[in-house]
């Protein structure tokens, strides 16, 4: 079973990296870009758990390690083969 986890900065937390990427895109004449936020993408492959339990455990992984709740939020997506 595969889960994709997206970890992003909360709205309201400044993202200097996103700003640098936006500036670079602007200098490449992609002037339509209004905002860029850079986050993390984590792919998890899990062994033999029922779907609901697996999702609950991925949720726990995010809370305990993969994201820092002070500045980040996360989104979990199950990838169906």
């Amino acid at each position: 079973m595969r889960f994709n986890v997206y970890v992003t900065l909360k709205r309201g937390v400044l993202d200097p990296q996103g700003k640098a990427v936006m500036d670079a895109l602007h200098s490449l004449h992609f002037g339509e870009v209004r905002d860029v936020r850079v986050g993390k993408f984590i792919e998890l492959n899990l062994d033999g758990l029922p779907e609901q339990e697996a999702r609950a455990r991925v949720e726990k992984m995010c809370q305990e390690l993969l994201a820092n709740p002070v500045i980040e939020e996360f989104r979990i997506e199950e990838v169906r083969a």
């Binding site: 937390v13 400044l14 200097p16 990296q17 640098a20 820092n68 002070v70 500045i71």
Partner: peptide, 16 residues
């Protein structure tokens, strides 16, 4: 900070 023994978090420098 990560351990929660101190409040807050150290983010990347704003200059990157």
């Amino acid at each position: 900070c990560e351990a929660g023994l101190l409040p807050g978090v150290l983010m990347m420098n704003n200059s990157l």
